Amino acid sequence: MKLNDRQLDSFLKSPDPAIKAVLLFGPDTGKVKDFAERLGRTVLPDLSDPFRLADLTGAQLRDDGALLSDEAAALSMTGGRRLIRVRDAGDGNTEAFSGLLTDSKGDSLVVAEAGNLPAGSKLRKLFEAAKNAAIVACYADDERDLKNFIRQTFQQANIRCAEEALNFLAEHLGADRMLTRMELEKLVLYAGPVGALGLEDVRAAIGDSAALRLDDIVFAMAEGDPEGLDGALARARAEGMNFQPLLRAAQQHLRVLQVAAELVATGQSLDAAFKAAGFRGLLWKVSERLSRQLRNWPAKRLAEAMDRLMDAEMLCKTSGMPADVIAGQAIMGLAISARARTRQSPSVYG
């Protein structure tokens, strides 16, 4: 059974007792985890309780076909309903879940967490068709949903949030629901009971988060913005950022550009191409910037840039030189090259 947006909120607060298992899947892994924990707490307030929790993986279910049904049928030694969590579920677990849903014993709730399963996934089809199962797709929030989530979080804490502060949060959060919730919880503590938040409050609290600094650096590199990159790198150094993960993030971003460019060339829209390429941010915020980046990076230059970043990462591990110096030089060099290639003529990516 598929759950739509109208059904989801009430279901997360109080799941239908007839539902034996829930499958959460999608590219927003933070939202998958967030929903799994919310569902779990409806059965088990203490998610670390060893007597009422079975924490399994998809790999374990593949190795032992009877494990899932056995755990779901087991009784708690201390009484109360049990929670069965299955992480990293996939199509290889379809048979185990089919057995559970066909011959379900006990009153345990099974919550399965999966990645971005395709439409033809056997596991998806099983949960969609079963009357005693539910399936929830977890995609990145769009602008409306993100603002609603922020408003609801503050309203529940009796905190007033100025409109300009809300707009700032919507611009800087949202790619991962779990990270968004964590940042909002920090703001709730910052504001205090029946508090209020203005623009300067939220800017001070989340404006310099590590994820935002990383995005600033990678986007400045890809857009050919040496001046912006220089400032972002200086802030990262001052705050003690680890520069090896930065090199990997830059490589991943260029891989996404490479795949997206190939898909756009086959006729796909820009948004569809970046979704298929695995871009994990919020496209509605950065689609124009990504379009400019595609203009700056022909296929040959993308391949050369990724090789250069891999070489820099190896140097960080073997040369003994400071990682921030190696990474900074490599990324700045790519930004300068991208600026030199900036095209003035209209592009198919616009």
Rank of each mutant, 00 (worst) to 15 (best):
L197D: 01
L197W: 14
L197E: 00
G198W: 04
G198R: 12
G198F: 10
G198L: 14
L199G: 13
L199Q: 01
L199N: 15
E200Q: 04
D201A: 12
D201N: 12
D201V: 14
D201P: 04
V202H: 08
V202M: 10
R203T: 06
R203P: 04
A204R: 10
A204N: 14
A205R: 03
A205D: 02
A205S: 13
A205Y: 13
I206S: 10
I206Q: 09
I206T: 07
G207Y: 05
D208Y: 14
D208R: 09
D208M: 13
S209Y: 06
A210H: 12
A210K: 15
A210R: 05
A210N: 05
A210S: 14
A211K: 09
A211I: 14
A211M: 04
L212E: 07
R213W: 04
R213A: 15
R213M: 05
L214Y: 03
L214P: 02
D215W: 08
D215M: 10
D215K: 01
D216L: 11
D216Y: 07
I217C: 00
I217Q: 02
V218A: 02
V218E: 01
V218H: 02
F219C: 03
A220L: 03
M221A: 04
M221W: 00
M221P: 09
M221C: 04
A222T: 02
A222G: 00
A222P: 00
A222V: 02
E223Q: 08
E223I: 03
E223R: 01
G224N: 01
G224K: 10
D225T: 00
D225M: 05
P226C: 07
P226F: 09
P226T: 08
P226S: 01
E227Y: 04
G228V: 10
G228L: 00
G228D: 00
G228Q: 12
L229R: 00
L229Q: 06
L229G: 12
L229D: 01
D230Y: 04
D230R: 05
D230Q: 05
G231N: 06
G231C: 06
G231V: 05
G231L: 03
G231K: 03
A232D: 03
A232K: 02
A232E: 05
L233S: 08
A234I: 07
A234S: 10
A234D: 11
A234N: 12
R235T: 08
A236V: 07
R237G: 08
A238Y: 13
E239I: 07
E239L: 12
E239F: 10
E239D: 03
G240Y: 02
G240L: 09
G240N: 07
M241I: 08
M241F: 07
M241Y: 08
N242Q: 15
N242M: 06
N242T: 11
N242W: 11
N242F: 09
N242K: 13
F243G: 03
F243T: 01
Q244F: 04
P245V: 13
P245M: 06
P245N: 14
P245W: 15
L246G: 02
L246A: 07
L246V: 05
L247F: 10
R248G: 06
R248L: 11
A249P: 15
A249V: 13
A249F: 10
